[in-house]
Amino acid sequence: MRREYAANGKPVLRFASGLQIRVGNLWAGIGFMSAAILLAALSAGLGVTDAGILDLLNGFTGTDADDARAYALWTVRLPRIVMGFMAGCAVALAGAMLQSIARNPLADPGLFGLSQGSMTMIMLLFVLAPAAPKAMIALAAMAGGLGVAMLLIWLVGSERSSGLAILLMGIAIESVLSSVGSLLILYMPTETSLALSEWMAGSLFKANWSTIATFAPLMVLSIVGIFLTGRALSAYDLGNEMAMALGEPVGRSRPVILVFAVLLSTAAVTAVGPLTFLGVLAPHLAGFVSPAVSRARLFLSALMGGILVIAADALTRGLVGDVPLPIGLSLTIIGVPLFILALRLQALRKMQTH
């Protein structure tokens, strides 16, 4: 490993394998991970029961702890923090991937109809089999998301089709599925409709270690996916024609990336419900803090997504206490002002450089 300078004058670390990392991106990644740990420690101490990081450390060292505090930490708060971080990483990573293949900064799993496909299948399952086990719910969500992805690939067809065509087709499918979902909620039994409406707003209330154990392999897969798809996505950022000129097999790699994004978004939807706007918000905020491309962009976007969900959950439990504020709403309260501020600062930065 040696320190060099890229063509734009920015310092990079170059490895013998040819891999290079911008020093700025490396420091941003360290900063994001530190922020996630600090937010997790803060969130662990929020709630009605007076328990915090010291009680958590006592649990690790084997020191006897109060049963109520141990329950609050290990059964309620830590699963929420871990599940929220993993779900936020998954949605943000899926959004960053979709933005590259669509070449549109507003693309995310919701706009492509992937999240809506999963939600519609789950609703149909609740209508046909209200007592369906969790495994069947996960399979239904996966089938819905993959079904929308396959439909998009079939409708768009040609490998020379633009990212805009994929995005517009996704919006059309999402609109149809949203109408179907609204009809299902309208004519379902009242209790089922209320439960689905709460779930569709996003919730970490049912997070537990069992769900985390199911979700963890996908997080490992996402890390592998960052390394496998990062180079291809940097070519897609230049456009389909340029990607093909650089030797990227668009006809094969684009469906693989799309399916990978489906797996990430579907798992998050199944675990915590839809996290609206996070797939757009996290990559933009990460890019504002530290502009990046390829694998670094995916990694920083995923970390930012996890940070935002932890912060939203901490806001929910710190400000409103026992009031069950949906995580999707608190995420919007935190994220949208940051998004507006970042866009405004970017505009001012561009004005100063011209």
Rank of each mutant, 00 (worst) to 15 (best):
F126D: 04
A16S: 13
A44F: 00
P133E: 12
N208A: 06
G110S: 09
L111H: 11
H284N: 06
A195Y: 10
L303I: 11
L114K: 03
L128Q: 09
G247H: 05
R295F: 08
T190E: 15
T190Q: 13
L264E: 05
L155Y: 12
A282Q: 02
F15I: 05
G84S: 04
S197G: 13
M83F: 10
S115N: 15
A232H: 11
P133C: 13
M97E: 10
A213K: 11
N58C: 08
R252E: 00
T192R: 03
G113E: 08
G321Q: 13
L319F: 14
G62C: 08
M86G: 10
M200N: 14
H284P: 04
M119R: 10
L125D: 12
D237T: 01
A143W: 04
Q352L: 15
D55H: 07
P79E: 04
G251I: 05
M83L: 15
V180G: 07
L278K: 02
A292P: 00
M219E: 06
G225Y: 01
I226K: 00
E248G: 08
T353V: 14
A302T: 06
M123V: 03
A245I: 05
N104T: 02
G147D: 10
L275Y: 09
L343P: 07
L194H: 15
A36Y: 08
A268V: 03
L46C: 08
P109G: 07
L281F: 00
L124Y: 07
G144I: 02
T192Q: 12
A311L: 01
I81G: 07
L56I: 11
T266V: 15
